[in-house]
Simulated scan of single mutants.
Amino acid sequence: MKQLPPEYYALLEELQAVDFVLVELTLYLDTHPHDYDAIQQYNQFAQQRGLLKKQIESKFGPLQQYGNSYSGYPWNWDDAPWPWQV
C-alpha cells in the first residue's frame, strides 16, 4: 500500500470530525427544524467540509465515487489506500 504523509491522516481525521458534527446536526434539525442557530451551524460545517474535501482531493486524490469527486489523469480510482482503509 502507498505510504502517505502525516498530513493526510490529520486532514482525514478532521474531515471525519466535521462529518460527525453534520450527522448530529442533521438528526437534531429533523426534530427542531426552526432552530435558526443550528441551521447556521450546519451551513458553516457544510462549507468547512467542502473546503476540507477539496484540500484532501487536490493533494491525495478522490474521496467519493459516482460524480461526487473528480478524478485526476490518469484515472486514479485504483490508487490505494481508500479512505476507509486507513
Rank of each mutant, 00 (worst) to 15 (best):
L22N: 09
L22F: 06
L22E: 03
V23L: 15
V23N: 13
V23P: 04
E24V: 11
L25T: 07
L25P: 01
L25K: 07
L25F: 03
L27N: 14
Y28L: 07
Y28E: 02
Y28C: 07
L29A: 12
L29Q: 08
L29E: 02
D30Y: 09
D30R: 15
D30S: 14
D30M: 14
T31D: 09
T31F: 05
T31W: 02
H32A: 15
H32E: 08
P33S: 09
H34N: 14
H34V: 12
H34G: 11
H34T: 12
D35M: 01
D35E: 09
Y36L: 09
Y36A: 08
D37C: 04
D37N: 12
D37S: 12
A38Y: 01
I39T: 13
I39F: 08
I39Q: 15
Q40L: 05
Q40E: 03
Q41A: 09
Y42V: 03
Y42L: 07
Y42C: 03
Y42F: 11
N43G: 08
Q44S: 12
F45Q: 06
F45V: 04
F45G: 04
A46E: 07
A46R: 14
A46L: 10
Q47P: 00
Q48V: 05
R49P: 01
R49A: 04
R49K: 15
G50M: 05
G50Y: 06
L52V: 04
L52F: 01
L52S: 07
K53C: 03
K53T: 11
K53F: 01
K53L: 03
Q55R: 15
Q55P: 02
I56D: 00
I56W: 00
